[in-house]
């Protein structure tokens, strides 16, 4: 068995207005950061997974993401599996 590092990012679906992101974007604009646009706020999870292979690690993390970390009615996710305990 190997240890892998998994990174899961969960973001609001594009079709849903991210009011929190908009509020922060407006705050940045009023602070003078006019070049910044399309700011979105999401959740970033980092964990280690013990699995026989990278594929198995991915499938464990994807299953956990679908069951708990992400509510797919309103959120999308992306998963990265890195070798070793990063």
């Amino acid at each position: 068995m190997e240890q892998y590092t998994a990174i899961v990012d969960v973001m609001l679906r594009k079709s849903i207005l991210d009011v929190q992101g908009k509020t922060v974007e407006h705050a940045l604009h009023s602070t003078g950061f006019k070049a910044i646009e399309q700011l979105h706020i999401g959740k970033h999870f980092k964990m280690t997974v013990t699995a026989a292979s990278k594929d198995e690690a991915f499938s464990i993390v994807e299953s956990a993401t679908k069951q708990l970390l992400c509510n797919q009615i309103m959120e999308d996710y992306s998963i990265q599996i890195l070798s070793g305990n990063a």
Binding site: V19, Q20, T23, I73
Partner: peptide, 17 residues
């Protein structure tokens, strides 16, 4: 109830934040 799928939909942050 929504997060457990017993009712449809989801509750997002209020539009006013």
């Amino acid at each position: 109830l929504t997060d457990s799928g017993m009712l449809p939909g989801a509750l997002l942050p209020n539009m006013s934040m």
